[in-house]
Design a protein around this nucleic acid. Structure first.
Lengths: 120, 120
DNA sequence: CTTCGGCATGTTTTTTAAAGCATATCGTAA
DNA sequence: TTACGATATGCTTTAAAAAACATGCCGAAG
């Protein structure tokens, strides 16, 4: 008995992008989380923005917005001082990053299962 | 004994947007599926586009792209004729719409569960 | 009490995506 | 065989988003 020949059907991938909103419209998404990570890494909004080829203005505005997503700040600003100042992630900031990635990963895993079964 | 008072933590929502890609970069997303639905509803790319306040040009280009996502067309064009022509969904087109919505719904359900547990 | 470099913020410029315009083509029903 | 309205497609214009620019502020360290 010949092996069952099943015409191999086309493969598809699911791409998704998530945003987590609070009830006032403030949110975090992939780009913003990346910004947070870079602020943590470089200790400065200016440098983080430069590194990501993003304008400082936009980066700063994103931080302003994100800082309201929880009761306490995600990013703490440091004004003045020898180096002119800087910015650093708070513990809450780190938490938000971790939770975001966890959710992204869970969804990624789930959507991968769904993608396998796509049959148009 | 007093009831345990748990400080009600802030609620968050997860919004997502998916796109289904084939290996050549052709894809369908929310907007394109909506366009397909309207083409099915109105029998014309022109009317579907107008209804969605989308330029005919863009709608037409989307259809061109989507028509290559499966071996057979999703939208069939009708040239000439009394009304000047039109367009109609193929069976495959209907299928793509159905599958897309199913996947969206599954992800929506899953992400809703995740959102419940968000605790920054 | 001056210096330094990042924060803060309004204003202008550039970029880029979408919309809009113009015109040719098509084929059936009248 | 002519008229009609939708498809087809290049070219121009507009509009929205991002970047760039300019300028003042801040405060610890030297």
């Amino acid at each position: 008995m010949p092996k069952q020949i099943t015409k191999q059907s086309k493969k598809y991938d699911i791409f998704f992008r998530i945003r987590i909103f609070d009830d006032s419209g403030h949110f975090v998404g992939k780009g913003r989380i990346e910004l947070l990570e870079n602020i943590g890494k470089f200790g400065s909004i200016t440098r983080a923005a430069a590194e990501m080829k993003m304008s400082y203005r936009q980066a700063w505005q994103m931080v302003e917005d994100m800082n309201e997503i929880t009761a306490s700040l995600l990013v703490e600003k440091i004004l003045g001082g020898k180096g002119g100042g800087g910015a650093k992630l708070t513990v809450k900031g780190e938490k938000v990053i971790k939770v975001f990635h966890q959710i992204e990963d869970d969804l990624e895993h789930f959507s991968r299962q769904l993608a396998k079964k796509i049959k148009f």
